[in-house]
Every structure is written in C-alpha cells, then in structure tokens.
Design a binder for these strands. Structure first.
Lengths: 341, 341
DNA sequence: AGTGGGCCTTGGAACGTTTCACAACAGTGT
DNA sequence: ACACTGTTGTGAAACGTTCCAAGGCCCACT
C-alpha cells in the first residue's frame, strides 16, 4: 500500500484534513483532545510528511548544500564542518555534494539543487568563472563561492592564494633554494593558478631559476607519489632542491615517495605544502605548509549565504578575503644534526 | 517576480502546458518546430523545473543519501567515494550528510531524508540498534547499514571488527607486548565495542595483563593527542608498551603527541591503528594499521541499496561481511638499528 | 470530394500539502 | 431568549508538474 497521507490520518482520526495540518503546524490552535487523537492516528499509521508537497505549496526549503571540490581532501571537510555549525544553529540541513574534481558532476549537482529549490548553495567550483554559476545566481538562488574570489554579482569567501604562493616561495628562497619546482594541477583550477602566480611573483624578486612546473591531473596523494618518482628520476645536478605543492595531499604523496626512493627531506629536497591539514603535522617529516582558516571560511560562507537567503533584496554581496599563514616545520628546516625525533 | 513555471513557458511559446511537458519528457513525440519554439521560450524565461512538483506527481526520486558518521574521517569519505561511483553509473545523485558523531543530528537527517522521499539511504549509525532506523525501514524506505552488521530485516555491509581487533592484538602479542592499551570511544559506537571484544579475545589466548581501556569522547586526532598525554604521564613501569587505537585518526594524534613528549615509537610505545587511511602510511612513523576495503564497502552498499529500490518486493536482504587485513609498518616493528628511512 | 488513419497537440485530473475564509459551537452579559 | 464574542474545526483553492484520453489536423487513398 502507498504511504499514508494526511487525508488518511484525518479519516482515521475522524477530523478534517485541515485539522491534521493544524496539529502539525499550529498545534496551539487545536484542543488537547483533538490533538491527541490526531497524533495517535499519525503514530498508528506511520504517517510521514511529504516534504515535496510541503515545499511545493509553501515555496520554501530549509536546506542548504555545499558542492565540494573533493570530499577526500580534508581541507574541504574542515570547511564543511564550519558551514555545518552555522547551518545547525540556524535550523538548516546541509547536504554535501562531492564534485570529485569533475566539472560535469559538479554541473549536474548544481542543476539538481536548483531544481530542488534549495535555500542556498555553497560551492567550490572546479572552474572559477563557470557561466552556470552566474546563471543560477541570475535566476535567484543565493550562491556563495567558497575558496575562490568572485565578481561583484555574488558573495565569496576566499584566502589570498597569490599571497600564499608568495609566502611559500619567499620562505624557500630565504632558505637558499634557487632551483624550485611547483607541483599541482590542473591549471584550470583557480587556486592552482593563483598559487603559481604568487610563487612566480616571489621568484621575480630573487635571482633564481624560473619555476619548474610539474602539472598534475588531480590534487591527490597518488599524483604526489607520481611527482616524487619524476623528481627522484632526475640527475641530482638538474633536480630541484625544493618543491612547493599545491596542497598537502600532493605534498604527503611526494614526501612518501621521495623518502622511499632515497631522497632525504629536507636535505635533498625541501617540501612546502598547502592547507595545513591535520595530517601535515603528523607526517613522516612534519610538513611546512601554508595554513588557511578552514572552519572560519566555512562559517563565514554559510553566514553570508543565510543572510542573502533571508533578505534577498536588502542584501549586498561581499567578497571576503582571508590571509594565509606559513607554518614552518621540519620539511624545510635544515636540521643541525642527526635530527630524529 | 516568481520563478517562471511551465505555464509561463507554454504561454510564451504559444502552446499548451502539456506540450511543454512533452518537450521535456518525451521529446520524440513533438515536432522539431514546436520543440524549438518551446526550448527557446525556456531559455528566454530562464525556466527551471520544479523538482518538488515533479516528485509529488511522479512519486519517485532519483536521489540517494549517505548519512556519514563523520566526514572528517577519511575512512568515510573513501567509502562515500565508492558509493558515489555506483550512484553515478546508475544516474543517481548522492547527498552526503555529516552526522558528526552526533546522534541527534543523525536522527534529524534521517527524518528529513524520509520526508523527502529519497530513493534510499545509506547510513553508518552512531548507535547500531537505533529504533529509528528500524522505523524507517518498516515504513518502506530502503536502508543499507554501512560498516555495521544488521539484523535480517535490512541489508548491511561491514567488516569483521572483532576479527580486526583480534588481528591487531595478536600481532602485538606476537611481538612480545604484555601490557597493552586500547584507545577509543565512546563505547556506544558499535565498531569500538567490537574491536575491544576482538582485542580481548586475542588477549584471552595469551598470558598477558588485561586490556587497559582509555575511553575517548570522539574518534579524532585531538582525542588521540590527549591519550598521548595520559600515556606519557604514566611512570614507565606501569605504562603500556603498546597501544591499539580504534582508528587511524586517534593513532596519528597519539603518535604525534607521544613523540613530542619524548617517547620513541615503537621502542617505548608500539602503535596499531585502524582503517589504514592514506595518511597512515605517510605518518612520522609509518603506522601499522588494520585495513578495510573502503571503496568496495561503499560500492557494495550502494549496489544493494539500488537493487532494493528497484525491486522492493523481490529483494532479499543481505548482510555482507568483509575481512580486514593487518598492514604492518614501522610503528610496531622493532627496528634493528638507527632506523631512519 | 469523402473517408480513414497517423501524428501532434490539448485540456484536465491528480499528487499531498498549507492556508484562509468561514461555519459551528459554547459561553457571557443583557 | 437574544445577540455577541471568541475559540475550534471545516472545506476548498492553489502550488507546478505528469499523464492520459480525446480532439484536431493533414495527407493519402479510393
């Protein structure tokens, strides 16, 4: 048999349909006695509200969604945790959608969410200037771009990735490195491009070789290992003495493979990661990394989103930019001696 | 102005409402010319289908959800990635809901998903025998329990956690440890309880001290660090020589803090983790860990769920149990000498 | 020219809820 | 007894879609 509806509940309790609705939505305007009869009927039939019908009639949803670039990157789950806090406080549900660094899947999610009329969308886009996002915004669904800047037509929260790249390279240059590799990709990902820009900006101020860019297909541990093989395969004379990785996943993979293939870190190869995920500090050689305020990013994004959803007309778009910080650890520190533990 | 509906599109294109629906759902039965007119109108008005209305009328949804125990644990995002693959292949969207190890939040998500009439729910429950789950199943929404066994009234995929605990402890006992701590909690989490059971089973076969259980409030890195402090604070004579952690997050935190406080791993303290997440191998001291087939778990769960959703009556519930494997690394290996890299 | 048959298109019912104007009823004060 | 008030409950409309039976049109064939 089909799921019971309010009509069934009403019949079973011997009241009108509207009364059932009142019990659920305005319990104070129904007598104790009637209310109990209705609630009993609900329990007895196992009635479950139909959210579709509800939303269709009411026009409103209390659901937010975060379309994540890649849920397997702990950076994003930390951001999501920040957003979740705010959603909880505001009585909203938050759905996470894993884009898996795949533009098509991300676009599919975006379409679906718009069709579901969610209250608002957080998104870390694969491609920053995806016209689909602009279209969603134009049609009226609040969108906040996370971890990327955006134009004046929507809100965004981000961290200055150019500055981050600059910090990382400045640190390596200060330590005396002159042949430095960048590992990350694809370049279409805005964060990657910006970090390269920042790195080259720092490089331009120094007397060093141009940045060797090892472009990767994804930003995960496996690609980091692959990069490690490529670096270890180079003759020492041409091998970069330091690597700046677009994120910590790559850096951890690189570190792992480099060590396995006999390179000493940091003596033969210094490594700087990005994001300062929890695991960076616990790595074989604790990782120097560019730290971003992850949870704050998520909290702020969700707050902006809710503000826009609550007052679409009065809302003014904001593009909040946070500053990254360099956290120096062993992977770039020339150790005085033996150095274990 | 309100979002345009099919009615608006129909008026704008000068056709009947039903024709617009046909263009969208059965394009082959509409003339080229008419179709174009309608599609143009859709583009011009920025019409977006209303999924609520659609679902209300059709009664079907093509959305799955995975209520995760904690998205910040990479184990679960790996499981989710497996489920996502299957969902993609089947043309389904998968929403991730972060329970954050919080029973209340998890229950809220469960309610919402049922009200939204999702096609099916994957869940890694905080409490294994939550009656709410049974209720959802009884009312007809397909549910597959992930990473926990379940009764005959629903499907589940899991890994034998008792065996996992046994493997871990057997390994430590073989290495000569006699005073061993278990770190993890809360005990209400089924996986934790089972791993303890397995550990004690192995212990019972040997002539060793009973398991010292350090119960934690959560299964994250911070709690691991806290446990590290507690262990390091003990006088060496009473301090366990080995620790078995309920998951790798705890193990990594423990490792980090133990090393910081001057304990050598594995000489002073051997550590076994659980899950074999990607970061375990890249840790300061590569972590011995009990490995589970994460993606396979997710794939299998999603396949069972879809099978049930497609044929609710013909479906027979299955409780698939996979076997864990111990991956031995440096954190439990007595190193012959100096031992770096 | 008339008829039969395809092919498109049409209009309306139905999905389950919320909301709102209104009916029913009981109690109060005259 | 009556009108009035306030409180509860009722019934119908509306939300935007899909599906289906039925209608309209045009062409080919007799």
């Amino acid at each position: 048999m089909a799921a019971p509806s309010m009509k069934d509940v009403a019949a079973h309790a011997g009241v009108a349909l509207g009364t059932v609705s009142n019990v659920l939505n305005h319990p104070e305007m129904v007598t104790e006695r009637t209310r109990k009869r209705v609630l009993d009927a609900i329990a007895e039939l196992g009635f479950v509200r139909n959210e579709s019908a509800r939303q269709l009639r009411g026009g409103t949803s209390r659901t937010l969604a975060y379309v994540v670039l890649d849920t397997r990157n702990p950076f994003f789950t930390d951001v999501a945790a920040g957003a979740q806090q705010v959603a909880d406080e505001a009585g909203r549900a938050l759905f996470l959608c894993d884009g898996g660094e795949d533009a098509v899947r991300q676009a599919n999610y975006l379409d679906l969410l718009e069709q579901q009329r969610v209250e608002g969308i957080l998104i870390t886009p694969v491609e920053a200037d995806d016209p689909r996002i602009a279209a969603v915004v134009a049609r009226g669904t609040p969108v906040v771009v996370v971890d990327r800047g955006a134009g004046p037509d929507r809100c965004s929260v981000s961290v200055d990735d150019v500055l981050g790249g600059d910090l990382a390279l400045s640190h390596l240059l200060d330590a005396g490195h002159r042949r430095i590799a960048f590992i990350g990709g694809p370049r279409a990902i805005g964060q990657v491009a910006d970090r390269i820009t920042g790195a080259e900006r720092a490089l331009a101020r120094a007397d060093a070789e141009p940045l060797t860019v090892l472009e990767t297909a994804r930003l995960d541990v496996a690609e980091g290992r692959r990069a490690g093989e490529r670096l270890a395969g180079l003759p020492a004379a041409r091998r970069p003495t330091a690597a700046f990785c677009a994120n910590d996943m790559l850096a951890l993979g690189l570190l792992q493979q480099a060590v396995r293939l006999g390179l000493r870190v940091p003596e033969d190869l210094a490594i700087v990661g990005y994001d300062d995920i929890e695991f960076a500090a616990a790595a074989a050689v604790p990782l120097t990394s560019v730290s971003q305020p992850r949870q704050l990013l998520g909290r702020t994004a969700a707050e902006l989103l809710l503000a826009e959803a609550r007052d679409p007309d009065g809302h003014r778009h904001e593009n909040r930019v946070f500053e990254p910080e360099l956290v120096v650890r062993e992977s770039t520190r020339i150790r005085p001696l033996g150095g274990v533990a």
